[in-house]
Simulated scan of single mutants.
Amino acid sequence: MAANLEQIGTRLRFFMKIKGMDIFALGEFTNTSAILISNIIAGKNYCMDDLLSVLNNIPELNPHWVIYGEGNIFKSETTPADTDTATMQKNRLKHLQEMQQLLETLDAIEKSKENKSQIDNLKARITELTRKL
């Protein structure tokens, strides 16, 4: 199974949105540069070793999900119990789970290249849910 660099960037950006991080904060958190984080998000100018270095410094994030889009975003079935998640609104987790399912569906549709309108509809729904966060 080949890794899609653009989808890796999309999934990493999704994690950053959940955690309320920008590229500078994630770079600092992972002891890497904001330029590397920006390149990963853009899907260009990085090697797999760089990506794995970033992912190894985010213990709660499931690297298999980031690279292949399979499984859960977090390593455990539940979201991590830290201050950020403890203060989440009741519906936020539901929105995040729906967004993850939509991203997985989007991946499947893009892989099969079936229908551009389905992709546009899913992207619009993801955007709508992102605004609610």
Rank of each mutant, 00 (worst) to 15 (best):
K123A: 03
Q101R: 13
T83P: 02
A3E: 14
T105I: 10
N115I: 04
M99W: 00
F14P: 02
E28M: 08
Q101T: 09
A34Q: 15
L102S: 04
E104F: 03
M88L: 15
N72P: 00
L103Q: 03
E110Y: 02
A2I: 13
L102E: 04
P59L: 05
I73D: 06
L5E: 10
T10W: 04
M99A: 08
K94V: 07
T87H: 12
E77H: 05
A81Y: 07
V66R: 03
H95E: 02
L5P: 02
K111G: 09
S112N: 15
A81V: 08
F15S: 03
L5I: 04
F24T: 12
Q100S: 09
E110R: 14
Q101Y: 08
A25R: 15
S112M: 12
L52E: 15
L12T: 01
T83E: 15
L103G: 01
V54A: 07
D107I: 13
L103W: 01
L96R: 01
L26R: 11
T10Y: 07
G27F: 12
G43C: 06
S53C: 12
S117D: 08
E77P: 00
K116N: 12
D120H: 09
T78N: 02
M48P: 01
S33A: 09
L52G: 00
T30V: 06
P63V: 06
E114K: 11
T78Y: 00
N91C: 04
L106K: 11
P59Y: 02
R11V: 07
T83Y: 07
Q89N: 10
L51R: 05
E114Y: 07
L96C: 03
P63F: 03
E70L: 12
S38E: 12
I18S: 04
F29A: 14
L61N: 05
N72T: 06
A108P: 00
N91L: 05
K111Y: 11
G20W: 01
N57E: 05
L5W: 10
K75V: 14
L26G: 07
E60H: 09
I8S: 04
I58A: 10
G20P: 05
R92D: 02
A108N: 13
G43Y: 08
P63K: 11
N115H: 07
I8H: 05
N45F: 06
R11A: 01
T10V: 05
F29E: 14
A86F: 13
D22Y: 08
R92H: 03
E60D: 15
G20V: 06
I119S: 09
I109V: 15
I37F: 09
I119T: 15
Q97N: 13
I73Y: 02
I67R: 04
F29R: 14
I23T: 14
L106C: 10
F24G: 04
R125S: 11
W65M: 04
G20H: 00
K90C: 00
I73W: 10
E77C: 00
L55F: 12
T87F: 13
M48Q: 15
E98M: 11
S76C: 02
T79R: 09
R92K: 13
I40C: 06
M21E: 15
K44L: 08
N56Q: 14
E60C: 05
M99L: 03
S76K: 12
L55T: 11
T30K: 07
N121F: 13
M99F: 01
A2Y: 05
